[in-house]
Design a protein around this nucleic acid. Structure first.
Lengths: 148, 148
DNA sequence: TATATAGTTGTAATAATTATAAACTTGAAA
DNA sequence: TTTCAAGTTTATAATTATTACAACTATATA
């Protein structure tokens, strides 16, 4: 899946367009996510940015991410049992997680089920699709044998 | 979605077939899940069963669920941000969660994407599909208006 | 400059889950 | 029946992600 290259002014605009004041903390947090596209946890973001903003508080990371999710810029990935990961909100968009190395891959997947707006009378507003298995690199290393 | 009616000896057999000794704790835990089909959390299970087994420890509930997931009898639902829910492993099987009342519905959903065994060279072993929106009952109550 | 508002920070509180070790059960062997 | 070992359950403590909160800081406007 190919990603758009975001400049710093793209990032600023994403924030202001949603009515979020582009503070240095918020810009760095969002920049980290759009530049890396590595489905980071709060800790990953915090540890990556604290060198640039030494006073950064983890609470700010939590607050910012919650705000960005609410505005629809980011989505939460509930793909790990014990921690929330974050990604750009680019839909429709599915995630594959390797059970060996833990890496998460993004894929476009257009399918008629994503077009459905209701099921059994319930109104569908959002789909989360997670795939699990063994990624191509781990298959190559281990040949996918021995219970891999 | 229609559920099978499980008897107590069905439950015992599910455990023994997987090489799990059918202790009273394990049988009651599994029975609660198969009889209720309400996607319970650890706390829901613990609180429901502790009257029948007053010495029950929450650790036993955690241990048992972990074991049943490993054996493939149950699946974990990562549909809430802060707690793991459990359900029978009946596939293919998707979950809808209402953002108003929180209720989770089960649906069969056969779709050609669930047949895919690989994507971009990655071997797919499992799909988790979560739908979010407003359920039919909440739509009826609120007419689905006012930002519902 | 003064002041109000929004944003950030550090600490403490909460809550789910896991680790650990002791106590208990069970069933087979002596 | 007694003994013993393996497996199971229990209670407590530890860990960890997340949230609550109150003090502090920066910013924008009058």
């Amino acid at each position: 899946m190919k990603y758009k290259n975001y400049t710093i002014s793209d990032i600023k605009e994403m924030l202001t367009q949603q009515g979020i004041k582009p503070s240095i903390q918020r810009m760095k947090i969002l920049e980290y996510i759009v530049k890396n596209r590595n489905h980071p946890t709060v800790d990953m973001i915090y540890n990556a940015i604290k060198f640039e903003i030494p006073t950064l508080s983890k609470t700010t990371v939590y607050n910012t991410l919650k705000e960005l999710v609410k505005k629809g810029i980011l989505i939460e990935l509930l793909i790990d049992e014990n921690v929330i990961r974050y990604d750009m909100n680019i839909s429709p968009h599915v995630h594959f997680k390797c059970k060996i190395c833990g890496k998460i891959y993004d894929y476009d997947m257009n399918c008629e089920i994503f077009e459905k707006k209701e099921i059994d009378g319930n109104r569908i507003e959002k789909y989360n699709v997670y795939l699990f298995g063994i990624c191509k690199e781990c298959l190559k290393k281990g040949d996918g044998r021995h219970g891999n």
